[in-house]
């Protein structure tokens, strides 16, 4: 599986028609993926400055080369159990885009990053409706890779609508 991954990373970022590259990461044993074009960088864990009167899932802010970047604890946001930070804990810094084109740089804490997959849009299934649409964690779809299920997240929806709550009312669970 590792050699497989290495090969895939070598593939040109300008992927073929309908095929996008996704960075996958682990969160409490589940595998999630986000479009790699949304990823700005991956940083090791560093101390954050907490902010008052914010939800528990907002850990605080860090200094990213002079920019003040808010950090989201994804486990806490998805109501997954807390876990101690390990050597693989990283912050994935993403660029989330608002509807008006305004970009926000935000970080999310994940257990570990795993690999980069090429996934064709035709290989993606819509997420099954479970419970209220409001509670759905911004899932763009589900993909299967090497017998694993990968939950593909919509970064813009996740960060802008769910974390910051800047959304207009209608939930956009499915893309």
């Amino acid at each position: 599986m590792n050699s497989n991954a290495a090969q895939k990373i070598d593939v040109d970022l300008q992927s073929e028609q309908g095929v996008d590259q996704y960075l996958t990461f682990c969160l409490a044993g589940e595998e999630y993926g986000i479009n790699i074009l949304k990823v700005q960088e991956i940083r090791g864990w560093s101390e954050v400055t907490p902010m008052p009167n914010t939800p528990d899932s907002i850990l605080g802010v860090i200094n990213l080369r002079g920019t003040v970047v808010p950090i989201v604890e994804l486990r806490s946001h998805f109501n997954l159990p807390d876990a101690p930070r390990g050597p693989t804990t990283v912050i994935i810094v993403v660029k989330a885009e608002e509807k008006n084109g305004n970009q926000r740089t935000m970080g999310m804490v994940v257990d570990a990053v795993s690999e980069v997959h090429n996934i064709a849009s035709t290989d993606m299934q819509p997420a099954p409706q479970v419970g209220d649409a409001e509670d759905q964690p911004a899932i763009a779809g589900l993909a299967t890779m090497d017998e694993h299920m990968i939950i593909i997240l919509d970064v813009d929806d996740l960060m802008i609508n769910r974390v910051l709550g800047l959304a207009d009312e209608e939930p956009t669970t499915q893309k």
């Binding site: 902010m51 008052p52 009167n53 914010t54 907002i58 802010v61 002079g66 920019t67 003040v68 970047v69 808010p70 926000r104 740089t105 935000m106 910051l164 800047l166």
Partner: peptide
């Protein structure tokens, strides 16, 4: 530095 650029305004 503005907090609003990437996050939102906080009271206080």
């Amino acid at each position: 530095k503005s907090l609003e650029t990437n996050f939102q305004q906080l009271e206080g």
